[in-house]
Design a protein around this nucleic acid. Structure first.
Length: 640
RNA sequence: GGGCCCGUGGCCCAGCCAGGAUAGGGUGCCGGCCUUCUAAGCCGGUGGUCCCGGGUUCAAAUCCCGGCGGGCCCGCCA
């Protein structure tokens, strides 16, 4: 792939270095190249070099350097000015045109995309939300980011497998199975999606269990503590009542059938054990309820346009014997210990080795406690099963690299996972397992909790966005198909998820997120539709041989430089997996394009060469936006 | 108690790692622009003690130290 902007920076660097050495001074060309930056304002030129960061002598001779560069008559430099210790360089229109035409005529629709010479096999495990409730907005962020990572590798030519880990064992599912069987495997009401309905059942069961537990405990408490417990019970009751308003029969039935339960929590625990053993008596109900939630989740993911290659069930993993194999292997490991009377790995000891820490990217200052592998009742813990799963992912897919897209709050268990793999002899796997961490999503005015059914679901946000989009279209007398509405809606949601750094907590305001205005995916889709509109109206092949060399002025030049920068931006985003950088670049590009579009007609341009130049800019914008959309997973809409 | 992350106009975010121009966008609010390629657009205006206090430096939103405020982790939960 050629990089027009890199070429430009090289060219400016050569001219500058030459001038500097003619003055008898020195400056490292690499450093110059690195420092070249986009000026904050158009009257500071097209590209700028901050001299103070090179040397003080250069600052003193700033004006001289500027004049000297100009006199060298480089093919790229038109004018150089020295303003407050900066060299501000105006670039020759002919140079940018030449570079852009070269790149676009050669690469066309693949402009900016680089394929790896030796493709990797990559596994991206993402979403993996527990099959006990619908996808909420936090899982939505996971889904969008995971899809982005998969796309980044696919666009680099890698072979990518997207896997969803269905966590159908453990206490959470046991609660759901308990409630589900107690009230006779209920059907969902017609107006509610199955996963939403079962999410309520799960939460109601879990809440009732907590209330029972707290009530018992409260009986033996005094004064303040009793009061605290009372308050907690009240809060649980209000959650339960909220659920009851949505599904009255469900809650009433559940209350009735759980009243007789002596020790609800113990019953749930024994269900968890039975599930892990694969007890036939509840296997049917278990599979049924998990499938019902998962099909609801799949429906949501389909709406988002996100698909998976493999659905891995935790119960199958356990049945395959891999989990017990992990425990056996651990027992013969040097790091095996008993911790709190339970079998464990002393990963803290391993983590003290600085070399291991570095190789496994264990965060500095992270204290690693021993990892308990199994409860005293013999059932394994989540991370133990995750060790087995990691091994499976590498082995089955022949993966060079595995991504676990998991919330940042799981930094410790993910570090333990890598250390455990290492301790068990899976050194390559441990080094090639990447925890792609993202911060949680907070919803304005709601403390989220799956166990309390307090969440904003992806489904409801999409519904809201579709409704809002439809309303807006209708108010303009445009009728859009349902498919188009969904594409606009889900793109708007993805944009929100991708425009904020994954490392930052996302505050989700449902009211604001459903806006479809400037600074959103819709704005970008609209920009692309405009560019496509011009090209289809023109209707002919672009003639690259007759393009005006001198026509890049004002906004045109600004736009050309932005298009020229695309391959670098794209490369950085793909390598560093920072979607937010691409989004802010696209916003700039769209802004410049729209501003230019408004004042400078393309089709109506009488001069053929100038018209062709403008068409190059339109086509460049189109390709850049389309390729960015491929990476971000935003839909192209032909009309908006 | 220990550790990690965050704090930038009313609201949301970029810039911080590799210190340098008058701190950028978006949104909000006020005003203007459709006989010309899509007005989900464009143009103009409004709005900031870069959390606070020290330090380093010719130069600090950026680096260092100490606070304050918010979030998260330190489970035989996931």
């Amino acid at each position: 792939m050629c990089h027009p902007y890199t070429d430009l920076k090289k060219c400016v660097t050569i001219a500058t270095s030459r001038a500097v050495s003619l003055l008898g001074l020195e400056a490292d060309p690499d450093k110059i190249m690195n420092l070249l930056q986009e000026p904050p304002r158009p009257d500071f030129g097209d590209i700028a070099l901050p001299l103070p960061r090179l040397s003080r002598q250069l600052v003193e001779k700033c004006g001289e350097v500027a004049r000297l560069i100009e006199s060298l008559e480089s093919e790229c430099v038109e004018r150089v000015q020295c303003v407050s210790s900066y060299l501000n360089v105006w670039v020759k229109s002919s140079y940018i045109v030449k570079k852009l035409v070269e790149a676009l005529s050669k690469f066309g629709s693949t402009y900016g995309i680089t394929r790896r010479e030796r493709p990797l096999r990559v596994v991206v495990e993402f979403v993996s939300a527990n099959p006990v409730h619908p996808l909420h907005i936090g899982s939505g962020r996971n889904a969008v980011l995971g899809d982005f990572i998969a796309r980044a590798h696919e666009l680099s030519g890698d072979h990518v497998e997207r896997r969803y880990y269905v966590n159908d064992l453990g206490l959470q599912v046991a609660y759901l199975v308990y409630g589900y069987t107690k009230i006779g495997r209920p059907k969902h009401p017609p107006e509610m999606k199955d996963d939403h309905f079962l999410g309520l059942l799960y939460a109601a069961t879990s809440i009732i269990s907590d209330i029972v537990k707290l009530k018992k405990k409260a009986a033996s408490l005094v004064e303040n503590e009793a009061l605290e417990a009372r308050k907690e019970i009240d809060s649980l009751m209000s959650d339960l009542l909220r659920i009851r308003r949505k599904a009255p029969e469900l809650v009433d039935k559940l209350m009735e059938f759980t009243e007789s339960s002596e020790d609800l929590e113990q019953e749930v625990r024994s269900i968890a054990q039975a599930l892990e053993r694969g007890e036939p008596s509840i296997a049917d109900a278990h599979r049924e309820v998990v499938d019902r939630v998962i099909s609801g989740i799949r429906e949501t993911l389909t709406k988002l346009g996100i698909s998976f290659d493999k659905w891995d069930y935790e119960s199958e993993l356990v049945r395959s014997g891999l989990v017990s194999e992990v425990v056996r292997r651990a027992q013969s490991s040097d790091f095996f210990i008993y911790y709190k009377n339970a079998p464990a790995l002393d990963l803290g000891r391993l983590a003290r080795d600085p070399e291991v820490r570095r190789a496994l990217a264990i965060p500095e200052n992270l204290e690693v406690p021993p990892l308990i592998l199994a409860r005293s009742d013999g059932t394994t813990l989540y991370t133990t099963r995750d060790i087995a799963y990691a091994i499976k992912k590498f082995a089955e897919s022949g993966a060079d690299m595995v991504y676990n897209v998991i919330a940042i709050e799981q930094t410790l268990p993910q570090a333990q996972l890598r250390l455990a793999l290492y301790a068990l002899g899976y050194v390559r796997e441990a080094k090639s397992l990447v925890h792609y961490a993202y911060e949680i999503v907070n919803v304005k005015g709601l403390s989220m909790s799956g166990r309390r059914a307090r969440y904003v679901t992806v489904d409801e946000v999409l519904d809201l966005l579709v409704a809002k989009t439809r309303e807006l279209a209708e108010s303009r007398g445009v009728s859009l198909s349902e498919e188009l509405l969904l594409k606009i809606a889900r793109s708007a949601l993805k944009y929100v998820m991708l425009s904020v750094s994954p490392k930052k907590t996302l505050v989700f305001d449902p009211e604001q997120a459903v806006e479809v205005k400037s600074g959103t995916a819709t704005y970008l889709q609209y920009t692309l539709a405009r560019a496509n509109g011009i090209l289809s109206k023109y209707g002919k092949e672009l003639d690259y041989t007759k393009v005006s060399k001198e026509g890049l002025v004002g906004k045109r030049k600004e736009l050309a430089l932005l298009i020229a920068r695309f391959p670098e931006v794209f490369r950085k985003v793909v390598v560093e997996l920072t979607p937010e950088d691409l989004v802010s670049y696209l916003n700039r590009l769209a802004e410049v394009f729209n501003s230019w579009y408004d004042t400078d007609p393309v089709i109506a341009e009488p001069d053929e060469e100038l018209r062709n130049l403008k068409l190059v800019l339109v086509y460049g914008t189109k390709v850049v936006v389309e390729n960015s959309f491929k990476l971000l997973g935003i839909d192209v809409v032909e009309r908006i």
